[in-house]
Write a protein that binds this DNA or RNA. Structure first.
Lengths: 257, 257
DNA sequence: GACCATCCTGTGGTCTGACCACACATGTGG
DNA sequence: CCACATGTGTGGTCAGACCACAGGATGGTC
């Protein structure tokens, strides 16, 4: 069967954003819609296995390619995972990898400058303030250890900018993980990770001066850690706020153009 | 050419999250990686056109299917848009639709309960507090009109739960849009939208009592709007906070299982 | 010269049918 | 009872074909 139809959409105009699509006809999108609908309706849950690609294609009356392309879309959103072979990990299974998907998505859009840098900074401040405040209340010994490891690593003599930046990221991630709020943590991580590369480039652009900046960052981190360790959420939030804003003020970000 | 190799990953253990992938071998993922790399490196910018699928397949020495599946992945992340024909909109073009992609992603993961509901509520409160506070400062007449339209719509006699819920969403979206921060707005919208369906079901589950709840929501909304209109950011934030928390306390959410 | 119908070309969208690598289940020989 | 071959079903990959579409190039007509 060979088809390429056009469907007439029945759109109910919301007060915002009138118009909407018109192109909702590509068969792989229709397949995607059906699967998503089952997820939204609760028919498909985490751990459930989708029918085989060939079966699905047969039931939906589309080619296997269309089904596969739809699955790729879901995969990119961290909603399913596919495995070959048979048994346990085989087949296409609904699963939960929101963190990775969110990170990939934000990283790309930040790189494309779809979000102005000041907006990103403000968002980071907002998120990491919350993360730090929550972490001050919820952080367990494991969480604190992870932070200490990152801090100690950053103190290593002769550490390079790249390694330093990775550990810096790890420190912020550790705080987010300690917040106890999965969603806030994932958004925090995704945003910080999306800044990883830009920050590295900025550090490298500093040349020999980067050590001075690094020293300030080390001091900031230690101060933040102290506030979290002592359970002072408000103080931790303020220090994270100040840390992020001052860092972005000092770092020379390329305008990418 | 028929290939299915396994590559040995050279992973640098970060302090957090050891291990990592192992499966990075599927050809469409390799294609995806290459395109993403070009985006992250700044080689591909918004508006740029990718080579034709056939060309790309040739240069990368993979089948056209592999290329297409990679593109589907990018499409799901709102990073590219494909159009047939020739000229202007034809071809696969790097573009920016972060809002839609973010919304789809969060909606799915919220539906899958990958994020605990209390976490979602806290995140919403955090985001919408910021949005409301910013909106109080930045809202223009257009923004205020959009809010008024939603509010007036919700006052319509005999309005159904579904229409009410849509307008409720529109009100919150209008506030987010007025914040002036694209990223915060998109995250706010995505989260509120992901709650749209659950909230609707909760409203319907209330039966005839839903009118009483709706009345309270109307009062909340008017109070929030007044604070924003008068430019009192702190007050707006507090009222949004209270509004969201009380609403979630009253609404009977299905535990979905 | 202005105009319009026609063909050509290149794009993504779809379909078909085939083979590969893999992991498990089952059977079979020792 | 174990060790090995075989069968079966999964996703992964590929090649080649055709479709619908939109614009450009062509060539005719008035």
């Amino acid at each position: 069967m060979q088809m390429t139809e056009r469907v007439a959409p029945a759109v109910e105009d919301a007060p915002e954003a009138p118009w909407h699509p018109v192109t909702r006809s590509r068969s792989h999108e229709l397949v995607l819609d059906q699967i998503e609908e089952q997820i939204l309706a609760g028919t498909l849950r985490v751990g459930d296995r989708l029918p085989g690609e060939r079966d699905l294609a047969g039931h939906l009356q589309v080619s296997r390619s269309a089904v596969r392309e739809a699955i790729r879309g879901l995969e990119a959103q961290g909603v399913v995972r596919s495995g070959v072979g048979s048994g346990k990990d085989a087949g296409t299974i609904v699963s939960a990898m929101p963190s990775e998907a969110l990170t990939r998505l934000l990283r790309l859009h930040v790189a494309l400058s779809n979000f102005p840098l000041p907006d990103v900074v403000d968002a980071r401040v907002m998120l990491e303030r919350s993360s730090a405040a929550l972490a001050a209340d919820h952080a367990g010994e494991d969480d604190l250890d992870a932070m200490r490891a990152a801090l100690d690593g950053m103190d290593s003599a002769g550490i390079g900018a790249e390694r330093f930046n990775d550990l810096d990221t790890a420190f912020h991630v550790a705080i987010a993980e300690a917040s106890g709020n999965r969603l806030v943590a994932d958004m925090t991580i995704a945003l910080r990770d999306s800044m990883r590369r830009p920050i590295l480039h900025a550090l490298e652009a500093l040349g020999p001066d980067w050590e001075g900046v690094a020293d300030q960052l080390r001091k900031d981190h230690r101060a933040i850690f102290a506030a979290i360790e002592s359970g002072d959420g408000a103080l931790a939030a303020d220090r994270v706020d100040q840390h992020i804003r001052s860092a972005h003020a000092v770092l020379p970000f390329a305008t990418h153009g």
